[in-house]
Amino acid sequence: MVSLEKQILYMIQHRHEITASELIHIYKDRGKSKQTIRNALSTLKQKGYILSKDRKYTLTESGAGVIRSLQLKISGENKAWDGRWHFVMFSIPEQLRSLRNTFRRELVQIGYGLLYDGVFICPYNRNTSVLEVAKRTGLEEWIRMGSVELEYGPITASLAEQIWPVQTIHEKYDQFIEWANVKLEEWSALLNPFTVVSPWNVLLQVLELGERFGEILLEDPFLPKELLPENWLMEKAWDLYDKHLNQLIPLLRSDSHLFSLIVPVD
C-alpha cells in the first residue's frame, strides 16, 4: 500500500466518512490529479478497505485492520526482544498468483522478511496481523505459522541487512532528517505575531510531512536494536517528525473542518 492510500484510510478513520470531491480538493494542491485520487479510492474499495454509499466513503473492518497492523508494527519498536523468531510458511498455487503477491507485499509491510522461498520471518509476534491479511486475501488454508528459538545459524545484524532493506531505509531516514530540518526552520520563521498563516497551507504541509515519513514507516520492519546499525536514524527522524507536527497542529485548530482530517472526531 502506498502512503497516499494509507493517508486516505487515516483521514476516513478520523472523519468517519468523506467524499471523493473533498479528497480531490484536498490533494489538488499537493499535485495529485483527480484520476490519481479516484484510482486510490478504487483500489481501496477493491481491496475491501472502504465502502461507498451516497457518495461518501467509510472504513470497513478490513480497512481498520490495516491500520491496526501498521500501528502494531510501530508499537513493537519499544519492546525488548526475547530472541525468538516468528515465521509464516506457505506454498500457494500459481493460479492464485495475484493473491499470493498481495499476501507477500502485506507481510513485508507489517515487518516480515523473506528468509527462504515461501518462508517469511519476524522477530515479533504479529500473528494477529498475519491472520487478518490471510483472511482479506482468502488464503488462510495455504499458510502455516509458528515461532522458534534458533539452535543453530543465528540471524545476525549482517544477515538482517540481506533479509530487510536496512541500509536503504537508513538512507531514507537521513534524507527525511535533512528535509525536516529545512522545513522546521521555514515554519519557525512564520510563527510570529505579525504573520497570518492559512490553515489550508498548514494542512498541505501536514500532508506532505505525513507522506514523506509514512513512506519510510511502511518500509521499516521495526527490527530490535540488536539487528540494526549502531547509528540507526529512526529515533532522530521520529523526533523531528513529532517536533514539526506539534509545530503545525495548533495552527489548524482555528479550522475545525480541516483539523478533523488530522485528529480523530469524538
Rank of each mutant, 00 (worst) to 15 (best):
I12D: 04
H25P: 06
W164S: 03
E211R: 10
H170P: 02
I37W: 00
L131R: 11
L258A: 06
P250F: 00
G111L: 06
L261S: 02
G63F: 05
F120N: 11
S3I: 14
W81Q: 02
E211N: 11
V202A: 02
K32W: 09
G65V: 00
S33I: 05
E219T: 02
T102H: 09
D255F: 11
S69A: 15
P221D: 04
K34I: 08
G214C: 08
E132S: 14
A157K: 15
E141S: 14
L23C: 01
A189N: 09
L190E: 08
S33P: 05
D266V: 15
L114T: 05
P199I: 05
G63H: 07
K172I: 00
A237D: 09
V88S: 01
R30L: 15
M145R: 13
L248M: 12
V148F: 14
H25A: 15
P221W: 06
A189Q: 12
I249F: 14
E230Y: 06
S33Q: 03
L139P: 04
M234T: 05
K47H: 10
A237I: 07
A180W: 04
L51K: 15
L99A: 09
I37N: 01
M1T: 09
L96Y: 12
T43V: 13
P93R: 11
L252G: 04
R30N: 11
L99I: 01
I74N: 03
R55T: 01
P221T: 09
L114S: 04
I177N: 10
N246M: 07
Q71K: 15
L223Q: 03
G214F: 02
E178K: 12
G113A: 07
S129E: 14
Q247I: 10
L23P: 02
T60A: 05
N181G: 09
M1F: 08
